[in-house]
Amino acid sequence: MPALRARGRLLRSQHRFAAVSLTPIMLYMMGFTLLPMVWAVVITLFRYSPTREGVFLGLGGGNPFVGLRNYLDIFSSSINGQLFRLSLKNTFIFALLVLPLNLAITLPLAVLIETVHHRLKTVFRTIYFLPTVTSLVAVSLVWGVIYNPTFGLLNLALRAVGLKGMPWLSDPKTTVLGIPLPMICLIVTYVWQDMGYNLVIFIAGLQGIPEVFHEAARVDGANSWQRFWHITVPLLRSTLTFVIVMTMLSSWQVFVIFYVMTRGGPGNLTRTLVLHIYETAFRHQEMGLAATVAMALFAIIMLTTLLQMRLLRREWEY
């Protein structure tokens, strides 16, 4: 009996410890995630600006309840609707181009790095990863100077080989395959900055593939190209799924390089969703509307994740 009582006391003190340490942390955390999430949904139903007086929590009064009008607004032909759809389109173009470009560079690069000597492998990986650890703002500033029409490195190089320079980030007319030149420039910068991350993940994935598979294929007479497509790629599938989802998600949420390098210009050609949310909420102080756009972004992110998971899972079942 005393043993049982002691056991009970022990369990009680364990429970107390768990409750006492976890409760404040959980409450705190929910206060900064779930509460804002709910609040975000609530203010989408109001014409809300912190500059106007409200009745309760800033809502009501000068910030009237408008029902679903904010949601209708972003799909209407109003200026808000047009800006939203333009930002959506720009972000879409950006995300859809970044993904294949990134994969087309990082996967082969990872395979090549895997073939070199161990020492050199570390050196290459270190160098390729440098842009990724660098502050995004600094990266944006450096590339802004590189693209500068008068003093930039790019035009300096072009003029050196007898070509004409371009106003890379401010040219509203030039397009490549229908995509505005400033957008292309931002994509290049983004991929340059972001690829180290995927590269490291791919290298780790490649190291997880047992050498015997390659050996076996080599014995069967498969060349390196066949080995890449029929062994490396299928065995990397889970890594690939992960990389694709992460790359997509982070490119939907892109902000810093666009804010620093172009501010969405010229003529809103590089206005992205997050930039649009930021401008609407904190420059024009229309937070109800901005929160509505944020909900759209949330929906897109959720859909992307689900869709990619579903698509790639189906392929696994072969």
Binding site: M29, M30, F32, T33, L34, L35, P36, M37, W39, A40, I43, P50, G58, L249, Q253, F255, L273, V274, I277, A281, F282, M287, A290, A291, A294, M295, L297, F298, I301, M302, T305
Partner: peptide, 15 residues
């Protein structure tokens, strides 16, 4: 909560 993007909660967080 890890799935909620920061851009969705940043406005209420500011408030």
């Amino acid at each position: 909560t890890m799935m909620i993007p920061f851009q969705v909660t940043m406005i209420p967080m500011y408030l």
